[in-house]
Computed example of a mutant assay.
Amino acid sequence: MLPHWDDLRLFLAVARAETLSTAAKTVRKDAATLGRRVARLERDLDVVLFRKSPQGYALTEAGLRLRDQAEAAEAAMRAATEGIGGAGRPEADAGLTGQVRIGAPDGCANYVLPQVCAALGRDHPGLDVQIVALPRVFNLSRREADLAIGVSAPTAGQLTVQRMTDYRLHFAASETYLEQSAPLTTLEDLQRHRVVGYIPDMIFDRELDYLADAGVARVALASNSVAVQLNLLRQGGGVGVVHDFALPFAPGLRRVLRNDLSLSRSFYLIRHQSDTRDARLNRFAELLVKAVRAEVARLEDQI
Rank of each mutant, 00 (worst) to 15 (best):
L140H: 05
Y210K: 03
L184M: 09
Q130V: 15
L190M: 13
G126P: 08
E188M: 05
T160H: 11
P183N: 06
L147F: 08
Q158T: 13
P200W: 11
Q162P: 00
E175Y: 05
A182S: 14
V129S: 04
D166V: 04
F171Q: 01
R143K: 12
S152D: 07
A217T: 15
I199S: 03
D189W: 03
R194D: 09
L120A: 05
E207S: 14
L208G: 06
H124K: 09
R122I: 13
P200C: 07
L178F: 01
E188C: 06
V151I: 15
P154H: 01
V129H: 03
A212W: 04
A212S: 13
D166T: 10
A182H: 09
D166C: 08
T160F: 05
H124E: 01
L169F: 02
D146R: 09
S141G: 15
E144K: 03
I203F: 07
Q130D: 07
V196N: 01
D166L: 07
Y167R: 09
I131V: 15
F204D: 14
N139W: 02
L127T: 06
A172C: 06
R194A: 09
P154F: 00
E144I: 02
R194E: 11
P200M: 03
I149D: 02
Q158D: 14
L147N: 05
D146N: 13
L208Y: 12
T186C: 07
D123I: 06
D189I: 00
F204I: 09
Y177E: 02
A156M: 09
Y167P: 12
A133I: 11
D189H: 10
F138Y: 07
F138I: 01
E175N: 05
T186P: 10
G197S: 01
